[in-house]
Simulated assay, not measured.
Amino acid sequence: MLWNLDASWLMMAIATVAVLSYFFGAALDALMREDGFGSFGNALIISGSFFASILGANHEGYNLREMHAAVLVGLAGAFVVLVSLAVVKALLARM
């Protein structure tokens, strides 16, 4: 799906995901406090894993032509990665 976008749509998608990730990252930073990665760190993790999960699903052969399916896969992958990293960080901090 991402490979079929032209440059202007890809830049708008990256900018939209980055801005929304920063808002979610700031809210999650207020909730997670020391177990989080800061608002910018949360945003980087969410943005990167959003696109990585879409690319991974495409690589595995899933058809993500519809936007709602791609957004669902991206959000699920992003929050699975964020929660996994937060659990690892919390476990390492309590050792």
Rank of each mutant, 00 (worst) to 15 (best):
D6V: 05
V81S: 11
N4D: 02
N58S: 12
H59A: 10
S49P: 02
F40R: 08
L10G: 12
V73E: 04
D35Q: 11
M67L: 13
V88I: 15
A13L: 15
E60K: 03
V17E: 10
S49Q: 00
G36Q: 07
W9T: 08
L20K: 05
F79A: 04
W3Y: 07
F23A: 15
L55Q: 09
A90V: 10
A57H: 03
R65H: 05
E66H: 02
G25R: 02
D29F: 03
M95A: 11
M11E: 10
F40G: 00
V88Q: 13
L5S: 13
F37V: 09
G77N: 02
I45E: 01
F24Y: 07
R94W: 07
L44T: 09
W3K: 13
Y22G: 10
S8K: 15
G36P: 06
L28I: 14
I14V: 15
Y62A: 03
G41T: 07
G74A: 02
V88E: 12
K89G: 06
G77K: 01
E34V: 10
G56A: 13
L75H: 00
W9K: 11
E66R: 01
V73P: 07
I45K: 00
A27V: 13
N42V: 04
L28S: 13
G61L: 03
L85F: 12
F79Y: 12
A15P: 11
S49N: 04
K89M: 06
